[in-house]
């Protein structure tokens, strides 16, 4: 059995500690060690965006980050997006616009959209499409997702 390293990081605003092997990605750590299964594995090589999280304020594919790399960093996942009693406006917009079908890509899209709106609160349709191009959805044809993100931007 490979050696496991001790890592301390900030996860959705709370300090957490975990043990992981160097070869475990942040995605594996979130899902298998911390039991936060909102981030999904769609391709495990950075091409689908289903595992998107925000690392130190920057959108990343958690399958392309090693768990050990998050020592001393801050990670935001889909589980931390809503307030306890209220959804985030992006989440509301996804529901209102029916911007999900199977829902497997939805956490990744919401994280990606959040990172976009945090940086650019009033994106154009093209800017939304460019920013979200790393997130694959196979159900919706993207129409309602793009509308949801534009709606959320308008609402914020």
């Amino acid at each position: 059995m490979a050696r496991r390293s001790h890592v301390q990081t900030t996860l959705n605003g709370e300090t957490v500690e975990f043990l992981c092997e160097p070869r475990q990605s942040l995605l594996e750590v979130l899902r298998d060690e911390l039991h936060l299964t909102g981030a999904k594995e769609g391709c495990n090589n950075g091409n689908c965006g289903a595992c998107s999280v925000i690392l130190d304020g920057r959108l990343v594919n958690s399958c392309l980050v090693l768990g050990v790399e998050t020592e001393g960093k801050s990670v935001e996942t889909i589980e931390g997006v809503a307030d306890p009693d209220k959804l985030h406006p992006i989440q509301d917009a996804f529901l209102e616009n029916a911007a999900l079908q199977c829902g497997i890509c939805t956490p990744g899209f919401i994280m990606s959209a959040k990172a976009l709106l945090d940086e650019n609160p009033n994106p154009t349709e093209h800017e939304v499409r460019y920013w979200l191009a790393g997130n694959l959805c196979r159900c919706t044809g993207y129409d309602k997702i793009v509308r949801a993100v534009l709606d959320a931007a308008a609402a914020e």
């Binding site: 981030a39 996942t77 529901l95 999900l100 829902g103 919401i110």
Partner: peptide, 15 residues
């Protein structure tokens, strides 16, 4: 099932 799916709580097979 919408709220579960936009908050990451919905449990898929691999979860």
């Amino acid at each position: 099932d919408g709220v579960d799916k936009v908050t990451g709580r919905a449990v898929y097979g691999a979860d």
